[in-house]
Amino acid sequence: MSDTSTFHKPDRRVAKSKQALKQALLSLLAGKDFQSVSITEIVRLADCNRGTFYAHYEHKDALLADVLGDVTSGLVEAFRAPYRDKDFFHLDELPYTAVALFDHVYLHAELYKTMLNGNVLPNFREQLFQALKSAALDDLYVDPNEASSKINNELQIIYQTHALLGLTLHWIEEGFKYTPDYMAEQLMLILNWRPGKVIMKHSRKP
């Protein structure tokens, strides 16, 4: 009988090495821009050698791309959490506690703050948007029997994705002024709010 534990050891070593390299890069990016980071600095901080680095990545841009892949996949997974394993759901019946996106971002606060630095990855926001938009377009569709069925599904998803991402990024840039629970609750209130009359602020009495 083969030793299955021996079979899995190389994969664990690879995962551990790659995680150390990714963490080293993120630590360095907290204090300097990406172009200034050298592979020598990365491997030194990760406590490995250049051979280990090149065994996994062709260059540091590939390492950064791997980090971005982790970020976007984690964000998409958190986005899908409220409706995972469901055939359908009613938005107005969805409890705010089902929203996992803000918990995910807060758990990885330093990572998001670092990646939002324009010197790290200038198009980071756009890549997050594309990841969320693709997930929503793949997963969600308005019930054609609903009164809102005249709304173009793609345009609705693009609108809501921009709104969700904008709200999340504002929260990060404001230094996590509110708790994840508060943000989730506010998100659900906003999504379910159907305004009637809108009053211009200049017409309000002091």
Rank of each mutant, 00 (worst) to 15 (best):
F176Y: 05
N145A: 12
V71A: 09
L165M: 10
Y57V: 00
K113F: 07
Q156W: 13
S36K: 14
T40R: 13
M115T: 05
H104W: 08
L101V: 10
D66K: 06
L91C: 03
K205T: 03
S5V: 06
R13K: 08
L116T: 06
K133F: 12
P122F: 01
W193Y: 14
T6D: 13
S149F: 02
S38M: 00
A147K: 13
N117D: 14
T97Q: 15
M115R: 04
M115H: 06
L111M: 12
A184I: 06
L121N: 00
A30S: 14
G175D: 10
V76I: 07
L121M: 06
L155K: 11
M188N: 11
R194M: 02
V67T: 05
Y96S: 14
C48M: 13
S27R: 08
P10E: 02
L128N: 00
A62T: 08
A109R: 15
E58W: 05
A65K: 08
D181I: 01
A98V: 00
S36N: 15
P195L: 06
L164V: 12
L165R: 01
M115I: 04
A30K: 15
I199L: 15
Q23C: 04
L25N: 09
S134C: 09
P122C: 01
I190G: 04
T168D: 04
E126Q: 11
A136L: 10
L45N: 09
W193P: 00
N119R: 11
T161V: 15
W171G: 12
T4L: 11
E185D: 10
W193D: 12
N49E: 10
T40D: 13
K177I: 08
I151E: 10
S73Y: 11
R12G: 00
K9D: 06
N153L: 02
H108E: 12
I151L: 13
T114E: 05
D11E: 11
H108N: 15
R125H: 11
K9Q: 12
R194F: 04
Y182T: 04
T97D: 13
L111C: 04
S73C: 13
E77L: 10
T40N: 12
P180G: 01
L155H: 10
V37T: 10
I158K: 14
L75R: 07
G166A: 07
D85G: 05
L28H: 02
K16G: 03
N117W: 05
V76L: 05
Y182P: 00
M200P: 03
L187V: 01
V142C: 08
A184K: 02
H104N: 07
H162T: 07
Q160A: 11
F7K: 09
F88S: 14
